[in-house]
Design a binder for these strands. Sequence first.
DNA 1: GTATTTCCTACTTATTTTGTAGGTATTATA
DNA 2: TATAATACCTACAAAATAAGTAGGAAATAC
Lengths: 133, 133
Amino acid sequence: MIISTKGRYALRILTELARRGDCVPLKELAGEQDVPFKYAEAIVSNLVKAGFVESARGKNGGYKLTRAPEEYTLAEVLRETETSLAATDCTGRKEAECPRAATCPTLPVWKALDKTVYEFLSGYTLVDLMPKN
Amino acid sequence: MIISTKGRYALRILTELARRGDCVPLKELAGEQDVPFKYAEAIVSNLVKAGFVESARGKNGGYKLTRAPEEYTLAEVLRETETSLAATDCTGRKEAECPRAATCPTLPVWKALDKTVYEFLSGYTLVDLMPKN
DNA sequence: GTATTTCCTACTTATTTTGTAGGTATTATA
DNA sequence: TATAATACCTACAAAATAAGTAGGAAATAC
């Protein structure tokens, strides 16, 4: 599985923020989008660190996007929120470890696959995920 | 991770069979390709069931390909050996379960991604994985 | 009849994903 | 200034999946 709930929840939360526009507390975001609140906290924390959203603390606080919705590609968001977008360990977490890497005839295929996926995901933005009516 | 060791080991074993041509006992295949023997047994069992290799039991037994190496696409092999090739649970194991499916704006994106990946993997065969010298 | 091999079922371990618990710091507002 | 609502932080726990093992039964060449 390339794309886990973590990344998909992140997209849901961002999409909801795009729909609402103003500052929204996490409680509402998580509720609206069926994301477990405590899990959502961890996810949004990443989004803040990555600069995708900004937060306001205290009463009336919440989150809002830092850019226009069409400026968030899925590739960019998922790269930050997923543990790894790589199709194999060979090009992901264990890339450095494999003793076969230098001569492996399959490695170039995985690299090309990763590139294909990344380019595919770069072709969509949050706008493409917003309900149309 | 779309492609786990299970699928990659399967490809290694098939590639080795392609290289050797004749009937090869698993002990040699697994040894040559650094695949744990007992794990290899489980994997080859799938390959037999899928019709990719045929087996001969008893002394001097082993496995051999049922077709020419260029007739095995990676897509085909990985579809049989991986638990799921889908990029998300939404289009894989839990496809039927999701209550959002009917209206989910993201689902078509995952479907298109799966298609992209599948077509990519259909563009390679065992021959592309064989060492050139 | 013996050595070698595939085949079969069940179990175990390691890793990753998914989520929870419990609290601290900050801020608007009454 | 007290209160309620909120973000932020660290650590833990549960569930699911991937990866690998164990032990033997059945077949076959020699």
